[in-house]
């Protein structure tokens, strides 16, 4: 239901990996003396810092540049860390009707989501559900998580959803669903609502 920053993570990890790998390879080539023969770099035996660092780092401009680099690194890293928090990414209020001078009708998607959950919770075998509406009133986007017990008839549940719950939602919005994503989970708990009772056994004659 919640959304994570998978693409961002893969992209940044790949970029950082390539940069660090390239830097490491360059260091190894320099240390082995191969790089100085290929490019105009100092010989392998020379010191890494040939002069005194103090005059360079005493300049106010160098300190300012380091400060900016530090601030940028810290801010970008903080943004990346915050992006790891899973987000619901909910829709704005649905604007069902807007006639200008006549007024307008808006609906909080969570109200419709609760109605969907209440209807789904009464279906046979359903232990609980969670609905999230995204998109717009004209192009609604439903993500539904349904938790069923381990004996539930999943095909029957899907038929119920497709034949009653989803059409009801579409009818309420007067628009077809743009997307429907359904996640089925299984729980050892029993149904708290509805009238379904399962029993098994062997009849001896």
């Amino acid at each position: 239901m919640r959304q994570t920053a998978g693409t961002l993570n893969r992209t940044l990890l790949a970029i950082l990996g390539i940069l660090v790998l390239a830097a490491g390879l360059a260091l190894l080539l320099q240390a082995s003396g191969i790089l100085p023969t290929l490019a105009n770099t100092p010989p392998a035996g020379r010191k890494v810092v040939s002069g005194d660092l103090h005059p360079f780092f005493s300049q106010p401009s160098a300190v300012s540049v380091l400060l900016v680099i530090g601030v940028l690194t810290a801010v970008l890293a903080l943004v990346w860390i915050i992006a790891q928090i899973p987000r619901k990414n909910p829709a704005d209020a649905y604007r069902l009707d807007d006639d200008g001078a006549q007024g307008r009708t808006i609906c909080d998607p969570s109200v419709l989501a609760t109605a969907v959950e209440n209807q789904v919770n009464t279906l046979p075998g359903v232990v609980g559900s969670s609905a999230m509406l995204r998109g717009t009133a004209e192009e609604p986007d439903l993500t539904l998580k349904v938790t069923v017990n381990d004996r539930a008839d999943v095909r029957e549940l899907l038929r119920h959803l497709e034949s009653s719950t989803l059409p009801d939602l579409s009818a309420a919005l007067e628009a077809p669903l743009q997307r429907r994503r359904l996640q089925i989970d299984v729980s050892g708990r029993t149904q708290s609502t509805g009238i379904v009772a399962h029993s098994t056994g062997v009849v001896l004659k």
Binding site: Q3, A5, L8, V79, R87, N89, G135, T136, D141
Partner: peptide, 9 residues
């Protein structure tokens, strides 16, 4: 970046 476009993934 986390999405903020009101669309499902």
């Amino acid at each position: 970046m986390s999405r903020n476009d009101g669309q499902s993934t």
